[in-house]
Design a binder for these strands. Structure first.
Lengths: 339, 339
DNA sequence: CTGTTAGCGCATTCAG
DNA sequence: CTGAATGCGCTAACAG
């Protein structure tokens, strides 16, 4: 805009004091006589003056801003994590600002290096990188959801393996043996841990895994659809799969859609267990049993850890917080024991 | 972190040149001999130096950052708008950073005044305020979705009235007369325009509106549920409503849920028409007919307008872009004419 | 082509 | 309690 910015100098002049005095009332913590304070404050209000944040942060080396890096703003789970972060930060006088990387490694690195890092006091990231960009001289960071497992990183993750183990165990206890598993990519602990949870559970129960029943794809609805179609094909050829285990919300959604379209009765003709909530799990008849993640709490926890790092000026707290999942039992898993 | 920031001065010293020379290679646009440029660049790379953005923006009065204000990060429609904004901004060398206001007027005003405005070159906002905060000496702004209609604001909105008019017309053409309308709050043009579209259409067709069939609540699922329950109650007392018109996605979702739970066959026992997409509209049988908004394109358009404002340094372009809606015809509206 | 200098808007000594 | 002076990291004339 064309209107010239009004500065601390203008205020000082109009109030008939020195800039340092204005600075004092602005920052509140120094001694100023009540009268001058009031007079200055009045001018400030009158002209609706606010400090130039950039200038402040040059000299203070502090922005009171937390950067939040997420892969995808369209995924409600990321949104929920952000919400938790925001809540905690706000109560501690920090603002957050959100950056989306589109799950592109190069974008995230560029963003961190030249935009976010210089702008914020700390970073909370659901990263798609190997984490190297966050190391060495940059701002304090806490990783959420996608942990790297490596040292030097403080993380808030969920017990992917345990959660899926529990889910698989539930299926087995209900009498299922031929279980199809639809996995996401295996490059992060999220995908890998869940698959391991499935495998280890089957093994513990002495049930051999038919590798044809393990489908590995991406995290999206289309992948869930594709895998489910194959499962149905194989079943009509006599594969005999009685239950499907989905490794995330979108995959599960695709799975539901295909079963629905094929008029396969969930919880009757075939059982289904999902990982993460989605809009459909509460709408189907019967509703879908799924593993719930405490997304909001993950955000809160991550924020608390980050603020602690900032306050303590430690580059590494050595905290890897693992949050528990919960199995939300609804009606999509048939009990084969009592027919 | 404890590692001291490395500055332009350090680079200059190590390269054996003046800071201005380093500044020149950094900004690229000034003449520097190839040899010195290379030498300096090498030092920069070696030390992984990046400029202190705050300092740059103090002197340049430019941050290359666009602030995006949304009421609610959890709503996929906002996310979609943001996505469109991001796409355009990225190609023009701007970064965006997203702030969520929780639909709280005070929060938005505080955020704008002391955080966003000082930090960005321009603002795109889905505002819950009366817009006053954006006026007078602050940064250029383009309002999206929630237009204020007032002069002085550049806006990208949809034709709420026309969209709902069209939807209502569709119902009437299909033979519906007793139509229930579930409205959101009427403080913004979004809610108001849609209701007016409904009213004017009914009027044009000479159909009197039974005010008991107009439900005004908030924008959420719970409001849709509540209204739908009342509609069903009244219908079982003989009200004879044949179609429900929902004014947004969440209301529609609540409506679908209640109908589903009550085992009322959509498109058969009662017809339904929604405004905005939601996860359920494509899942139900039959699928839900709804009015679609071009959210992504709204974001793109808003970004283009904002960048133009910034470039032209005009505080008001005088543009009020109204985007068209589309009626997505699926199967949830019964044709009463041919039974 | 390159170095010197003067600010940008502000917080913070240090005197008074 | 208050003002004058210094410098934060950087860019932009202005000389050379």
């Amino acid at each position: 805009m064309e209107t010239k910015q009004i500065t601390i100098k203008d205020i000082a002049q109009k109030a008939g004091v020195a800039v340092s005095t204005v600075s004092r009332v602005l920052n509140g913590k120094d001694r100023v006589s009540p009268e001058t304070r009031q007079r200055v404050q009045q001018i400030i209000d009158e002209y609706d003056y606010v400090q130039n944040a950039a200038a402040v942060s040059v000299v203070k080396r502090k922005t009171n801003m937390i950067g939040v890096i997420i892969p995808e703003i369209q995924n409600p789970f990321n949104a929920s994590i952000v919400y938790g972060v925001d809540k905690v930060c706000k109560t501690r006088g920090y603002n957050i600002c959100v950056f989306s990387t589109d799950d592109k490694v190069a974008d995230e690195e560029r963003l961190i290096r030249s935009v976010v890092s210089p702008l914020v006091d700390g970073i909370i990231a659901i990263t798609c990188t190997d984490g190297r960009i966050y190391l060495g001289g940059r701002k304090p960071v806490v990783l959420v959801d996608r942990g790297l497992g490596a040292d030097d990183f403080d993380e808030v993750v969920i017990d992917n393996m345990g959660g899926m183990h529990r889910a698989c165990d539930y299926l087995i206890k209900k009498g299922h043996r031929k279980i199809a598993y639809i996995s996401g990519p295996l490059e992060f602990t999220t995908g890998l841990g869940r698959l391991q949870g499935f495998r280890s559970c089957m093994e513990e129960h002495g049930i051999p895994i038919d590798e044809d029943n393990v489908y590995v794809g991406d995290w999206f609805v289309a992948d869930g659809r594709r895998a489910t179609q194959k499962i149905l094909e194989r079943n009509s050829a006599g594969a005999g799969v009685t239950a499907i285990l989905c490794s995330n919300n979108l995959i599960c959604k695709g799975c539901i859609e295909v079963l629905h379209e094929a008029k396969v009765a969930i919880g009757e003709d075939i059982s289904l267990l999902g990982f993460d909530e989605n809009d459909l799990v509460h709408y189907t008849t019967p509703k879908i049993t799924y593993v719930a993640r405490p997304t909001y709490e993950m955000g809160e926890k991550a924020a608390e850890m980050l603020l602690e790092k900032i306050a303590s000026e430690k580059s590494y707290l050595g905290q890897k917080m693992v949050m528990r999942t919960r199995l939300i039992e609804q009606g999509s898993v048939k009990d084969l024991n009592r027919k």
